[in-house]
Amino acid sequence: MNATRYIRRYWQLYALLVLPVLYFAIFKYGPMYGVIIAFKDFNFFQGINGSEWIGFDAFREVFAMRDFYKTLRNTLMLNLLDLIVSFPAPLFIAIMLYELRTAWFRKLSQTILYIPHFISWVIIGGIAYQVFGTQSGMLNNVITSLGFDAVPFLTDKNYWLVTYLAIGVWQSAGWGTIIYLAALTGLNRELFEAAEVDGAGRMRRIWSITLPSLKPTIVTLLIINIGHMISIGFDRPYVIGNTTVREYSDVLSTFVYRVGLESGQYTLATVVGLFQAVVGLVFVLGSNYVSKKLADQSIL
């Protein structure tokens, strides 16, 4: 096939590709130019070009900060706990929803489980304060009226971790089921009928049919999640966290916000961002490699 014929035949596909490529070029690759701020003493009256080169000085400064290690530890800790607690939750829910036979009830449960995903973290923070507060929180009102001592859900760092994780599951688990349910729609129902004829119980069917067919999806999501190990959303720790538990709630994103925006040290903030990007890349490639070796599944 010569070039003209090729272009004439497939030009529509390339035309379709133009917008996404532009999007990535403008919004993902273009801003990477700003990464050089990490190697400059950035002064925005001079602009990026006008600022002086400082080599790795800013990296040295960041790596000497105590708060950097504390926030790095917290980021990894919160993400790891989230991976253990929040990652399996949508899987369980998806399997349970899939087992439901009454269509309207399944749809209703699904919708109710999705809703928290659409609530802004700021509002969730306000609700958390009303529900989990020590002195006037709903939950503690019940606990104290039963004659027990109030539980410091938001002000003791260990209780706070539980609160943080629980709110995370509540907010995201329903939404996370979508991908699993989508994967399950492709599954042949006849497999289940055959298994049932062969005398397989419900648990056996889930274990031998549903789970294996979800394996590629699980692995893909796991790799993506591990790639995000080092980066953490800003809103959740910032909104759910507070001064009393800052020892755990202070993470890299809130650190970047404080140092970069509130103190105007853009260079240091960029260093942290670059560090996160590099480590994140290593994590993705590493977990992809491991999964390829062990489970013969990979996304790259």
């Binding site: 800003f234 809103d235 970047v256 925006l261």
Partner: peptide
């Protein structure tokens, strides 16, 4: 940092995040 912002583009409801943007 700029790259990181894009990853957070999903929830930009807080004032803080708006500020980042």
């Amino acid at each position: 940092m700029v790259k990181k912002l894009n990853q957070h583009g999903m929830h930009k409801k807080t004032a803080g995040l708006l500020a980042l943007t």
